[in-house]
């Protein structure tokens, strides 16, 4: 193994169940149920997943949900907006900690 991420590892995701299969089965059943049409459509869930994939920076998830969003009828504008939501949240999460910085700085400053 010369690198940490391999595109083809995604196809082998199921092999995680070769050990402790009962947990893998519960996980994959749950995973499948999460993405079904419900109060949110499967397409809306795919766009959320795409945003989350960028927030957690998972290349497997980005691969998988880019394709899934397209299949479910999203276009590149909608997918880009989903990524901006992730970027806004990540950026905002950093920036809002600036208040903590200000609190601390004000506490110890004259």
């Amino acid at each position: 193994m010369t690198h940490y991420y391999d595109q083809h590892d995604l196809e082998r995701f199921g092999s995680i169940g070769e050990n402790v299969p009962e947990l893998a089965e519960k996980f994959f059943d749950y995973y499948g149920a999460v993405f079904k049409d419900g109060a949110l459509t499967a397409r809306e869930k795919a766009l959320i997943a795409l945003g989350v994939a960028h927030a957690i920076q998972c290349p497997y998830c980005i691969d998988s949900y880019s394709k899934d969003c397209l299949r479910k009828g999203a276009d590149l504008d909608q997918m880009t907006e989903a990524v901006h939501v992730a970027a806004a949240l990540r950026g905002g999460a950093s920036l809002v900690h600036g208040i903590q910085m200000r609190n601390r700085a004000e506490k110890i400053s004259m």
Binding site: A42, R43, K67, L70, R71, K72, G73, D75
Partner: peptide, 12 residues
């Protein structure tokens, strides 16, 4: 599909 993927669910 506008690309190399299968179409999604027709009803949805």
């Amino acid at each position: 599909p506008v690309g190399a993927f299968l179409p999604g669910d027709q009803v949805a």
